[in-house]
Computed example of a mutant assay.
Amino acid sequence: MAMPNVLKVHGLDLSYFTGKLEAYLRSKQIPYELIEMDTADFKHCGKATGVAQMPQVEWLNGQWLSDSTLIIEFLEELKPETTIMPQKASVRFVAQLLEDFGDEWLWRPALYYRWANAKDARLMSTRLAEGMMRDVPLPLFMRRWAILNRQRFHFLWRDGVRPRTAKRVEAHYLETLDALEHILSKQAFVLGNRPTLADYGFYGGMFRHFFCDPTPAAIMRTRAPAVHEWVARLWNTRIEDYINCPMPEVISENLRPLFRIVGQEFLPYMQANEAAIELGHTTFKFDSQGTLFNLPAQPYRAWRFQRLRTRYQQLPPHTQNEIHAYCPELGEALLKAVTFPIESRIKGLPITTPTTMTSRTW
């Protein structure tokens, strides 16, 4: 299939998933132009694709690409010579699992740090007012006020952030940061010495939010210097420089702390969300280390979880056993996630059902 000479990427230079896609395009040396969205372009892209989110990629002949995960999968097929997909089935599944984790678990703490802290919120609301809302004919202070209240309502209040849950949301970042520091202080990339899909899965939150926003960035610099270095290195990585470096074929021992979080928190959370969708509930309750969250049910995350489950079920038994032998906690969590419903964690609440892409908008 023909590819445009230069991809037109509609997004923002402070956007979680725009940053993920940009890092991938830079690494693959795919020329692109970042078209900074305003509200009119956001609506235009949404009308073209049927989805109000970013980034969106303008393709050939009026065609569009949407969703960073699916865009990367599509481009991997077009440019397999610089692939980021491990060839060994067990390692490839782990890379896909960690992309899901980076995209869907780190979203809440990333938005929390951006909008719950006064100095971060002041900075980012100003940037959005001057950028995304530059075409809105209102004074800057009114645009800032509108942005701040919108973001806090959607990404804090509606996403289960309360005074009683805030510390646990912060812990989601700190625990993941510590697990990544354990990995990246010993090896160059998440799965080994060559960049893979797992790196780009973590990159959206780790780059545009945790690395750039003042409060989480200060934490990263002091608490996880190896992660800080990895963020900068990946932005400057060219995959062609690693062509002669073998893809990882074993699951490193260094990943065990990270997999404990995936098994104990992420997989049960994704399963609970899916069960809520299947039961027709708009919200569900989830217990994270003794902190009870009331969360909106997200259809998109249910779809991601269904893909993950299907991939796991399609693995040959010996490949499943290989994953289980490496990390029994993860193996047990995977078995529960694909086999047993956990409706005991589900409870519907009478609020409006969120749109499919609410959690993926900005």
Score class of each variant (00 low, 15 high):
Y312S: 03
A188Y: 09
V161H: 02
W59V: 01
T126Q: 13
D38R: 07
R122N: 13
T222L: 11
Y269N: 04
R221E: 15
E322C: 08
S90H: 10
Y112R: 01
Q271P: 00
C327D: 15
I243T: 15
F266V: 00
W303G: 12
R114S: 02
R144L: 00
I84M: 09
W145F: 13
A297Y: 01
M124S: 08
N5I: 06
R221L: 12
S288C: 11
I35A: 05
L177F: 06
E240V: 09
Q298V: 15
K167D: 10
A224V: 06
L138E: 10
E278M: 12
H228S: 14
T358L: 12
A129Q: 03
T83P: 05
V91C: 06
H281L: 04
P86E: 04
T352F: 03
A146G: 09
T319V: 15
Q87N: 11
W230R: 03
K79F: 14
I277H: 05
Q151F: 05
W145D: 06
P31R: 11
A302T: 09
E36V: 12
E104W: 03
L78Y: 14
T283N: 09
Q271G: 04
S252L: 06
L308D: 00
L267S: 00
I35Q: 10
R223F: 07
T222R: 15
P55H: 03
E99C: 04
P317R: 12
R208H: 13
A198V: 01
E253S: 14
M357Y: 15
F210W: 08
T352C: 07
G204V: 01
